[in-house]
């Protein structure tokens, strides 16, 4: 699952995922509310969540905590997806239970390279 409000990033992300494997299924959510609703409905289908750190409305920290608090989500890895690579932000995300922190790259093949170890 990808939670990102940026349509371009959604597209690039989907392209990257398709490049890795056509069998992978992507659920795209535009905001945290949508994501939370879907996860509460069918949690079992999600293997990994990519969360954009800068979403409108709630802050990344809040959403991260909300996601973690959903039952059954405790062990699902949540990977932070962000433009920034700020050390402090990263540390805080890890402290709150994020599994990884990927800076949004400006090359498709770099994104593919970043996602491959996670999705295979």
């Amino acid at each position: 699952m990808l939670i990102d409000d940026d349509l371009d990033d959604q597209e690039i992300f989907v392209l990257a995922v398709e490049e890795i494997s056509s069998e992978l299924k992507c659920i795209i959510c535009h905001n945290s509310d949508e994501a939370l609703r879907q996860l509460q409905e069918n949690q079992t289908e999600v293997d990994v969540v990519f969360l954009d750190w800068n979403l409108p409305g709630s802050s990344g920290y809040e959403i991260l905590m909300q996601l973690k608090s959903i039952s059954g989500m405790e062990n699902v890895p949540i990977i932070i997806f962000s433009t920034s690579s700020d050390q402090q932000t990263m540390q805080k995300a890890f402290d709150l239970g994020a599994s990884d922190f990927i800076t949004k790259p400006n090359r498709l093949h770099l994104l593919v390279a970043s996602l491959t170890p996670i999705l295979t």
């Binding site: 940026d6 371009d8 690039i12 433009t83 920034s84 949004k104 790259p105 400006n106 090359r107 498709l108 093949h109």
Partner: peptide
Amino acid sequence: QEPVRKISTYANM
């Protein structure tokens, strides 16, 4: 950073 990154990404694509 966002648009710039996208310029890069799309130029690359």
